[in-house]
Design a protein around this nucleic acid. Structure first.
Lengths: 207, 207
DNA sequence: CTTCAACTTGACGGTTGCGTCAACTTTTAG
DNA sequence: CTAAAAGTTGACGCAACCGTCAAGTTGAAG
């Protein structure tokens, strides 16, 4: 015995390794396909072809294209939501609440551009599938936090629902523009959005 | 001769009448189908079924689903663009430039809610198909007008590209929210958006 | 090395979509 | 009324997708 080729590394599970690899192959294929063809027009066969696996193998991992799409959106979305929630919890003032939120958002997008591509290309399908606005629960959390801020008197009275809609819509579109331009850093985008909305909030308060 | 059943009314063209009717049947089917299933997932068969016509008839009017989609988007989009352009031409101040623009936009959407449904559901496909932002050339015209306004000194110096993105993104999302709520008139939505962006522009100028 | 469970593979039958076209119906014109 | 043109119809052949499953391959354990 001892003929083990690799006794050191805890290679307990060559099986598990392939499983992980295949799942990743499919998810990666999904990113490509959904971003280019769009979710609606994409077929399971497209995913299979792009992954390089066999038909049957695909179905060992996911039952349909929706599951792949959900896995992609949700993993990125929950990560993003966590970061946003953390940044808001740390906010010491209305200003930092807004500015840190945007900075986190745009930085995240810059680091995970595929996610924004997915989102921008398939916002309508995300909405239809999740029955929630484009960014998943993130918008609802924003809405809640805005209401709280108004209740605490941190920001003037305003329609939190509309404000959350405006912020998310603008943020998505600004993110897409940022990625299209090579001269726009997350910091710049965040600064722009922050000034825009802080100024807007101020004016909405005195109307 | 003179055996004509209806000599008075210029019924010159029973043919033309059906042509018009069929075309409208298909376009109407397109509005329904694209808004519910989404452009990508919609098939020509879906359009045919929803129109009530026969397969061959469809192809007498449109070569594929893309043509139907384009006809729908473009007709509404050009109408909207015309109204926006008119409102801007009449603007007497930066304030009315912004406020009238939004009012025209939201009023239009309230009168043609299907268009917004189409747009919201298929923004990604519109973008991919037109190779332009969600609202077609409207965003580019907005960008141009913003640059002009900055050049004239009507509004402070700002990144017109980002501002156009933010305005269009917010406007789309606000429009969708407005339609979902029964307590939000175009006037209210326009007032909100106006205050938001005028305040934002002001603050962006003094940064 | 052998054995077995776990996993992969792609061919297969069934379904749906595509665009066409020969046969039929409706409108117009004489 | 008749003839011809214009338009409609749906069945047809072809192509793609779907999810399954029997046969084959690979990894783990003894």
């Amino acid at each position: 015995m001892t003929g083990r080729q690799d006794p050191s590394s805890a290679s307990n599970g060559r099986r598990e390794a392939t499983k992980e690899r295949n799942r990743e192959l499919i998810l990666s294929a999904g990113r490509d396909v959904f971003a280019t063809v769009g979710y609606g027009a994409a077929t399971v066969r497209d995913l299979i072809r792009a992954s390089g696996l066999a038909t049957g193998t695909f179905y060992n991992y996911f039952p349909d294209k929706e599951s792949v799409f959900m896995a992609l959106v949700e993993s990125s979305a929950t990560e993003l939501r966590a970061k946003l929630a953390a940044s808001r919890a740390d906010a010491t003032s209305p200003e930092t609440f807004v500015s840190d939120g945007f900075l986190v958002f745009f930085t995240y997008l810059a680091n995970d551009p595929t996610f924004l591509g997915l989102l921008g290309r398939n916002a309508g399908d995300v909405r239809a599938l999740l029955e929630e606005p484009a960014l998943g629960g993130a918008v609802e959390e924003l809405d809640r936090d805005l209401r709280d801020a108004v209740a605490r008197g941190d920001i003037p009275k305003l329609d939190a629902d509309l404000m959350a809609a405006a912020m998310s819509g603008a943020a998505l579109e600004l993110g897409l523009r940022m990625l299209e331009r090579d001269d726009c850093t997350p910091e710049q985008a965040a600064r722009f959005a922050t000034d825009l909305f802080l100024g807007g909030i101020e004016r909405l308060g005195s109307s």
